[in-house]
Computed example of a mutant assay.
Amino acid sequence: MRCTQFAGRRAAAAASTLALATAVLGGTTAPAVAHGQVLTPASSHSQEEAAAEMLQPDPTSPTAYEFGETLAGLEGEELETTFLAEIIPRHRAAIEMAELELERGTSPDIRTHAENIIANQEHQIEQFTRWLEEWYGLTPEEAKAQALEEAQEEMKTLEEETRMMIEELAAVEAGEDFDVAFVQKMIPHHSSGIVEFLEPQARAPHAQLRVASTAGITTQQAQVADFRTWLAGRD
C-alpha cells in the first residue's frame, strides 16, 4: 500500500515540478524527470540558433527533481525533517555564493540581489534550524542521518554538485564576468530550491513551514525572473 502511494506521489511530483520549471525557467533550461529518466524538450533549429546567441544559465540539476519526487512520497515528520535537512545547507551555499558576488561583482543590481539573498536565507536558516530543534529535537545533521537512504544519496549528490558550482564560481576573476557567472549559477541553484519547496508548501504539518515555503518560492521566483532579464540584456 505504501509503495503504491509512494509511486503515485512521485508521479504527481514529477508533473508539478515540470509545470513549475516550465513557468520559472521558460521551458528550455530545466530537464524534466519521470521515473528516473531525464526528458529533454524537443526544440526546432531556429530555437537552437536563438539559444546559442544568448547567454544561458547553467542547467538545473536533475537530482533536484528526483529529490522533489522523493519528498512527494513522504508524510508528516518524515517530510519536514528530510526537507529541512536539505534546504538548510542549500541556503548556506547560496549565501557563500552571494558573499563572493559582494567581493568580486561590479553590477549594482546583482550586488543588491546578493545582499537580499544573504538576508533572506540567513533568516530562513535561523527559522528552520530552530524549528527542527523545537519540533523534533534534531540538528540538520541528525535529520539528514535519519532520512531514507534514497534521500540521503540524493542530498549527497546535490551537495557535491553545489560544491563544484561554488568552486567554479570562485575561479572566476572579479569584474563583469563574475556578475555573469554568478547569475548563471544562481538561477539553477534557486530553481532547485523552488522544486524542493513544493511539497512542504502544500503538505507540511506545521503551518509555519507551509508559510515559509511559500515565501521561499515567491522570493526565489522573483529573483530568477530578474536574473534572466539581466542576463538577456547582456547580449
Rank of each mutant, 00 (worst) to 15 (best):
R228T: 12
V195Q: 02
I110G: 03
A207Y: 06
T22P: 04
T22M: 04
V224L: 12
E196I: 12
A34D: 01
Q201P: 04
R228Y: 11
A174C: 08
Q146V: 01
E142S: 02
V33N: 03
I88C: 05
E161M: 09
E122I: 15
R210L: 14
T219R: 13
T162M: 14
E149N: 06
A171D: 08
A170M: 12
L169R: 06
T219F: 15
T214R: 15
V183Q: 09
H189W: 12
A30G: 01
G68Y: 06
F227C: 12
A204M: 08
M164W: 14
T82G: 00
A215T: 14
R104E: 02
H35Q: 11
G216R: 10
D58A: 14
G27H: 01
T28Q: 01
T40A: 13
A50L: 13
I87P: 02
G8R: 10
D58T: 03
R2G: 01
A151G: 08
E66V: 03
I87E: 02
E53H: 08
H91D: 02
T60H: 04
L231R: 12
I95M: 05
W135D: 09
L100Y: 00
I187D: 10
R92Q: 02
A119G: 05
A225F: 13
R203L: 15
I217Y: 12
A7D: 03
E77H: 12
Q223K: 10
T129R: 11
E48N: 07
A64M: 03
M155I: 08
A215W: 07
P188D: 07
A171S: 13
R210W: 06
W131R: 15
W135P: 05
G68D: 00
A51V: 02
M54I: 01
F6Q: 05
G27E: 03
S191W: 14
L158H: 07
A170E: 04
E66G: 00
L74N: 00
I88M: 08
L20F: 14
A42Y: 02
F83C: 08
F67K: 02
T139C: 07
E80D: 01
L79W: 01
R210G: 09
G8H: 02
C3M: 13
D179H: 13
P62Q: 08
A98I: 08
M165W: 15
A151H: 08
R104Q: 03
A174E: 07
L158R: 06
H189F: 15
E96G: 04
T63A: 11
A50M: 08
H91F: 10
T28N: 05
F67L: 06
V180C: 13
I194T: 09
V211K: 11
